[in-house]
Write a protein that binds this DNA or RNA. Structure first.
Lengths: 191, 191
DNA sequence: ATATTAAACTAACAATTGTTAGTTTTGATA
DNA sequence: TATCAAAACTAACAATTGTTAGTTTAATAT
């Protein structure tokens, strides 16, 4: 790759993420991406190496953010319930900043080539950290549940789908969303 | 389309669904699909009209099942909590039977052409019915929640992601999964 | 046995794909 | 103003795409 504008490359990644969210990685062509940026497809290669690299940079950046984030949360001196709330908050904040990129993280990771192994490791690591908080919460008597795996799966499903939903609810303030999510996920809805 | 074996067509749809789940609609070629069936790509066209038709039949069949299912549930003489449990049960049962097809319903619906309008109508209808149960549950005093949209989004996220998770947990009996999900989604996890 | 037909095949098409090579434009700096 | 590099361009490539046309195979019914 030539030495080229970091900003233009960022523009390309952001525009790619928008298209990936709408149609998915495979359905977006380099010509689509170029058109969205007002240039020709060949010009993209002054800034990036390949289509695959675009996906890889988007997905791995976010995966690293989430995994390093949960590690920081787990190391803090908080109750396990507070740690769960911190996780929810992290998802709301990252999803608000990276709405389009989140779609690639959720739906297009399987099209990674070189980066696939690292992605899978980061995801495992994240789920292991999450699982630890649930276990500690039960052992300390803060939490009760029948099946830990069901709980982990359920909470993660909600948090990972936020990217589909936050854009439609821009009137809902971040802080209020965190509160409503915490209530729903932690306390349920039965009176 | 020629009049041809209904069974062979079903085989094609099922194999397509398996591939769509793994790589997504756009990344699966007709040659991939044919190879998976042990035939040549051109032979597929003795049984189906187009790649698009395959997607459409898979997605619309399931969307219709879910929407007609929730309409039946809502018409029954049950408490709103029981209705929510019935919805959870419906998701577990349909997802168990149509694991691969559920992936297309969740991830590939945006690639529908002719069928897109019907799909969107069915989904709206489903969400409206679901919302009604939540509203009635609150009015009757069965349920409490801060934000109905957050609750709807959260429960639906979990139920719609079951297809990612059920295959890995085949040892968990359907009935037990319904119980664990009901506990988690309705009662939360805080002691 | 013959006729019929579903379902496979081979061969090819026009369009589209990601990417490369080589050239021109543009805008800042000396 | 002349220089130089970033970033655009045109043109083309080899491979792959969904699909069609026409043919052969194989099984069933007459």
């Amino acid at each position: 790759m030539k030495i080229s504008s970091v900003n233009r490359k960022t523009e390309i990644l952001e525009t790619a993420a928008i298209l990936f969210k709408k149609r998915g990685y495979s359905a977006v062509t380099m010509r689509d991406l170029a058109t969205a940026l007002g240039i020709k497809a060949a010009s993209l290669y002054n800034h990036i190496d390949s289509k695959q690299q675009i996906l890889s940079e988007i997905v791995l950046y976010l995966a690293r953010e989430f995994t390093s984030g949960i590690k920081e949360i787990i190391s803090k001196d908080q109750s396990n319930i507070e740690k769960l709330q911190s996780i929810i908050k992290q998802h709301v904040i990252l999803t608000s900043s990276y709405m389009y990129e989140m779609a690639a993280l959720n739906n297009d990771w399987m099209h990674l080539e070189e980066g696939l192994t690292e992605y899978l490791e980061l995801r495992s690591e994240y789920e292991n950290q999450f699982s630890l908080i649930l276990q500690n919460g039960r052992e300390s008597g803060e939490l009760t549940y029948i099946n830990e795996e069901v709980v982990l799966f359920s909470i993660l499903s909600t948090l990972r789908n936020l990217y589909l939903w936050i854009p439609k609810k821009s009137e809902l303030k971040q802080e209020d969303l965190v509160i409503a999510l915490s209530e729903t996920l932690l306390k349920g809805i039965v009176k």
